[in-house]
């Protein structure tokens, strides 16, 4: 393994660790739920992405051929992290958690009733007119 590739790998590994840590730090020290939501969805996802790229390069360099598994895991995390963030924000609005930002009232009121069937799922069943 050459020096340049080792520096690149170390840089990716350390920055992955730093981003993962910052995500959890945000989860711990921010002051209301809605701002806490930002740390894990963004910083942690990028941190794990960095680590996965590092792992892919590492297995490529150690002679087993470039490994492409990792792309699948990071792709999966990039698709699922926003979905869970959206659902958790929706649940928090539903429970009317207090927020540092003014909660919206008139233009798009959060659901106070339980909507059945749920309209938020992107491919769940045929369209239904809400009125």
């Amino acid at each position: 393994m050459s020096l340049a590739s080792e520096i690149l790998l170390s840089l990716l590994v350390v920055s992955g660790g730093v981003f993962t840590f910052i995500g959890s730090l945000g989860l711990w020290r921010l002051r209301d739920f809605y701002t806490r939501l930002h740390g894990p969805t963004k910083a942690t996802t990028l941190g794990v992405g960095c680590l996965l790229i590092a792992s892919s390069i590492h297995s490529g360099l150690s002679g087993d051929g470039l490994s492409v598994h990792e792309i699948l895991v990071s792709l999966f995390l990039f698709i699922t992290a926003p979905v869970s963030a959206h659902l958790l924000a929706k649940a928090a609005l539903h429970r009317r958690l207090e927020s540092l930002a003014a909660l919206p009232h008139d233009p798009a009121p959060p659901p106070t009733h339980v909507a059945l069937p749920d309209r938020a799922s992107p491919c769940g069943g045929p369209l239904r007119d809400g009125t």
């Binding site: 739920f33 942690t44 941190g47 680590l51």
Partner: peptide, 26 residues
């Protein structure tokens, strides 16, 4: 303090577990 915070913490924990496993793999 609320159930949503706990779910978010669990979500973060599993992503951290993925990071730990990737590091172990390296």
């Amino acid at each position: 303090p609320d159930a949503t915070d706990r779910i978010l913490a669990l979500d973060t924990l599993y992503i951290n577990a993925v990071a730990l496993l990737v590091l172990l793999g390296i």
